[in-house]
Design a protein around this nucleic acid. Structure first.
Length: 220
DNA sequence: AGCACGATTAACT
DNA sequence: GTTAATCGTGCTC
C-alpha cells in the first residue's frame, strides 16, 4: 500500500483531481488514546478543483485570510473548512507553496471500516454513506482538527494510497457543484471529475448487497 | 456591529 | 420539485 508522496500533489490542480480518482482515502481512527487505530477507507470517486485567487469560486479569491491560509501553504496538506453552519469539507492542497489551490474530495466508495462508518452515519443505507463531501467527513470522523494536517508526513492519521486506476472512458467532467452565486465563467468550468456510476469500475468494486455486508470489502 | 450567504444534507410535498 | 437547519466568514456600514 504505497502512500501518495508530496510530489503527487505538487502538480496542476486539475491533473491532481483527475489522478485522485480510484485512489484510496485512508483515515486511521483511534477510539481512545491506547487503542490500536482502526482503518476507515474508501476509493475516491468524485473530486473538484479550486485554483488560485482568479477562481471566483475558490476561497482564496479575495486573498489570504485566517480561514484559507492552509491553501497558501505547501501541497500535500489537508484544508478542512466548515460550511452551512454544520458541515465539514475535506480538501487536499495542491501546486507550489504560495499558490492557493486545492482539490475538494466530494465522494468515496467505502471499502474498509464499514461497521464504524455506518455508526458514524447513523445507520443510513450504504449507498448514501459517503456519496457527498459532508457525508464522507461524517463517515470518516473528520473535522476542523484536521485542518492543516500533513498527508505526507511520517505517521499521518489521514492520507491517500495508490489503489485502482480509473480508465479515461469511465471519467466524467462537468461543472463544479453548488456554485449558485458564482459568476461565469467560473460557475460552468468543467472542474468536477467523477467516475461514471454505470462504468465497469463501479460494477467491479460495488458489492452485490452492500447493506448486508458486515465486514470489509478491502484487499484489492 | 450587523448581515447575507455558503464548495450541503435530509426531510419534506 | 422545495425548504429548514445552523453558524463561521467576510463584506459593508
Amino acid at each position: 500500500m504505497t502512500r501518495l508522496p508530496r510530489s503527487f500533489f505538487a502538480r496542476p490542480t486539475l491533473e491532481v483531481a483527475r489522478a485522485l480518482l480510484g485512489q484510496r482515502l485512508v483515515r486511521l481512527r483511534a477510539a481512545n488514546r491506547s487503542a490500536v487505530p482502526e482503518r476507515l477507507a474508501g476509493l475516491i470517486v468524485e473530486a473538484e478543483a479550486y485554483i488560485g485567487e482568479d477562481d471566483l469560486a475558490c476561497h482564496a479569491h479575495a486573498g489570504p485570510t485566517a480561514r484559507n491560509q492552509v491553501m497558501y501553504g505547501p501541497p500535500g496538506h489537508a484544508y478542512v473548512y466548515f460550511t452551512y453552519g454544520m458541515h465539514w469539507m475535506l480538501n487536499f492542497v495542491t501546486e507550489a507553496e504560495g499558490f492557493p489551490a486545492a482539490v475538494l474530495v466530494r465522494a468515496i466508495m467505502p471499502m474498509s471500516g464499514l461497521v464504524t462508518m455506518r455508526r458514524l452515519r447513523r445507520d443510513r443505507p450504504d449507498r448514501i454513506l459517503a456519496d457527498g463531501p459532508a457525508k464522507l467527513t461524517q463517515a470518516l470522523d473528520i473535522d476542523g482538527a484536521f485542518n492543516g494536517c500533513d498527508l505526507c508526513g511520517s505517521r499521518p492519521s489521514l492520507f491517500v494510497e495508490a489503489a485502482r486506476p480509473v480508465a479515461e472512458s469511465a471519467v466524467r467532467y462537468g461543472p463544479r457543484i453548488g456554485l449558485n452565486n458564482t459568476p461565469e465563467p467560473w460557475k460552468s468550468l468543467p472542474w468536477n471529475v467523477k467516475v461514471d456510476q454505470t462504468s465497469e469500475f463501479f460494477k467491479t468494486h460495488t458489492c452485490v448487497k452492500r447493506d448486508q455486508q458486515q465486514g470489509d470489502m478491502d484487499v484489492i
